[in-house]
Amino acid sequence: MIRHLVLFKLNEGVERDDPRVLEGEKAFQSLPGTISEIRFWELGWNLSDRPIAYDYAINSGFDDVDALRRYVEHPEHQAGVTLWKEFATWVIADYEY
């Protein structure tokens, strides 16, 4: 299994209730029902107020590297990425577990 972690940082001046953020969050919430390669999916807003904390996280699982690749290339995933590029930056980590 492959774990795919994504941590998002909202751009300066962007708040959680920004309409773009709400649309981006909704796009990622819908992916498990759309992309069959997803085996595990959880996401949510960070609760920590520490300065080094990121704002939003996705923790997901896939059968193998090929399934992860298909997910990354899927048009619905790419549509969500396009939305998030407008208001956030992110880091990822992919590892076997």
Rank of each mutant, 00 (worst) to 15 (best):
V81F: 14
K26T: 15
T82H: 06
D18K: 09
F62I: 03
V21N: 06
F62E: 10
V81N: 01
M1W: 06
S48N: 02
I58C: 03
S60G: 02
R20A: 15
R3P: 04
I2P: 06
F87A: 09
E96I: 02
D55H: 08
E25T: 12
H4P: 00
W84N: 11
S30I: 13
R16E: 00
F40D: 10
A57W: 00
F87P: 01
V6W: 13
D18E: 08
N11S: 12
G44N: 13
L47H: 06
G80W: 11
V14I: 15
N59G: 02
E86Y: 04
G13P: 08
K26E: 15
I58Y: 08
K9H: 10
L10K: 09
A27D: 03
G24S: 05
W45H: 07
D18C: 04
D64R: 09
R20P: 05
N11M: 13
E23H: 14
S30Q: 15
V91F: 09
P75K: 00
V72C: 01
A79E: 00
D55A: 04
E25C: 11
G13Y: 12
L43I: 03
E23Y: 13
Y95N: 08
W84H: 00
R20G: 15
Y97I: 11
A88M: 12
V81D: 04
I92P: 08
D66C: 03
R70Q: 09
E86R: 12
P51C: 03
S36M: 01
K9I: 10
Q29K: 14
L31V: 12
N59Y: 12
E42M: 03
D64N: 14
I2A: 00
P75E: 01
I92C: 13
V72D: 01
Q78S: 04
V6D: 14
D49L: 09
D63L: 12
P19H: 15
A93Y: 14
S36N: 12
P51G: 12
E73Q: 09
A67D: 04
W41G: 01
G61C: 00
L22Q: 15
E96K: 10
Y71E: 06
V14Q: 04
I52L: 09
D63E: 15
G24M: 06
E73K: 06
R3K: 07
L68V: 03
F28I: 14
R3S: 02
F28E: 12
V14P: 08
Q78E: 09
G61V: 00
E86T: 10
D94T: 01
S48T: 04
P51R: 13
Y56C: 01
I58W: 05
R20M: 14
L10T: 02
R50S: 02
A57L: 03
E37R: 10
E23A: 15
K9V: 12
P19G: 15
V91R: 14
